[in-house]
Design a protein around this nucleic acid. Structure first.
Lengths: 133, 133
DNA sequence: AATAAAGTTGACGTTAACGTAAAGGTAAAG
DNA sequence: CTTTACCTTTACGTTAACGTCAACTTTATT
């Protein structure tokens, strides 16, 4: 049976995600992680590890840590009143819209890069035929 | 006939893209733009405007200005020797791979957000039925 | 007991990407 | 001629996201 309540040390996570322990502590400082402690030492649960993955995914998409913290917090509506829920919904939709924008940006940039690649390939061929002459 | 050789002032571009003139000058400082001058004053061509669009698109995808400058430079293979062209091709493909990664990240984050939205909607409904009771 | 391997908390340093004056030139409008 | 509207350069300030020691404690090993 796989241990479901596995835990991780800070250096284990650092190694796994190829970041420094300093970065992980920094994320905690900024309120994105709350590992439990065994004495002084931080102990990370699978849930903490998941949050870390969300943070890094956010970074790849250009999010600030504040934005990632917000998004992580969106997962759990918990004890919210109607106003809070509506505010949450608005933020979620805003973020989704931005993702659509990014999606479009990626498509266009991908096409641009494809053009550049073709141009470079043509230039290479031109050199090759010159060489042959 | 539409003027093909239209030009723009710095404040026109700033207004159009909703950024400050300071930012535009900063991009020039960093080597991303090279407007011509009429005396002291900067004059922007449609080509400059296009570069600015590329910069801003890059920003939306989390690129640094250095990275955007590189990408803009990729468009023109110009007078490159074979080694340079191969280096260029490698960079183009690397960037394309990263875009694929981002594409995947967006998909997953979109699903996560959808879940969050559903959860929030359920929470709202729960409140509504409670209200009715 | 001594050393090594990981962990901890400060605290100052660094880079990117502008923001924000300050001080002044230029050209059209009143 | 002076006010208004843009333009310029120079330069110091700011925020985010860590990097980089320093100084120390705890645990495991030799």
């Amino acid at each position: 049976m796989e241990q479901k309540n596995k835990t991780y040390s800070i250096s284990e996570l650092a190694k796994e995600f190829d970041i420094t322990t300093r970065a992980i502590r920094f994320y905690e400082d900024k309120g994105l992680l709350n590992p439990t402690r065994k004495g002084q030492t931080r102990i990370y649960t699978p849930a903490d590890r998941t949050k870390l993955k969300l943070i890094l995914r956010g970074k790849r998409l250009g999010l600030t840590l504040d934005e990632s913290r917000d998004i992580i917090g969106m997962y759990n509506p918990g004890q919210s009143n109607e106003d809070q829920l509506n505010t949450l919904l608005a933020k979620i939709r805003e973020r989704k819209n931005y993702l659509e924008q990014q999606l479009h940006d990626i498509e266009v940039m991908m096409l641009d890069l494809q053009e550049s690649e073709n141009r470079a390939l043509e230039a290479l061929e031109a050199l090759a035929s010159k060489q042959q002459a």
